[in-house]
Amino acid sequence: MEGNITIKLQQKSIDKIKEICAAFDNDSGELINVLHKTQEHFGYLPAEVQELVASELNCSVAKVYGVVTFYSFFTMIPKGEFPISVCTGTACYVRGADKVVEEIVKELGIKVGETTADGKFSLSCLRCVGACGLAPVVMVGDRTYGRVAPEKVKEILAEYK
């Protein structure tokens, strides 16, 4: 037997995934929808979850992983308690969103797409939230901050610490 592997999923998580797959008739053609629902439930798609989805839909784990890594919506990293999204759409970008990202990266010590070790913050970039008048825009959870200058980053983060 190769490796010493334990499935770390709890029974109720296993049941939930099976339920989601069954709702789509365990059809491998519905893989994206299944992953969508699964991520909605768990917040992210760790390897164990992908493995179970693959076995429920009777397709290869490599294929599931291929889909998860192709679509930027899917993530294998759990989101932080306060997910930070910086808009890097055209308007925000020309008004210095990249500098804002740089500052957040420096402050939190994580890269884009990562989560802080304490699970508090995660950082992602997205393209246009439809508030170009407020560029550059940063969202923390559901709250929106407009005209964010790099100097304001510390202040915003402090609200959540």
Partner: peptide, 28 residues
């Protein structure tokens, strides 16, 4: 129908790899 390889990631990072980009030896 072995299912060891799949296209993963996108754009310049796109590559054909086993699940979780593990070594072939650990795959199916």
């Amino acid at each position: 129908t072995v299912g060891a390889l799949s296209g993963v990631n996108r754009g310049f990072e796109a590559v054909v790899a086993p699940a979780f980009e593990q070594d072939l030896e650990k795959s199916v």
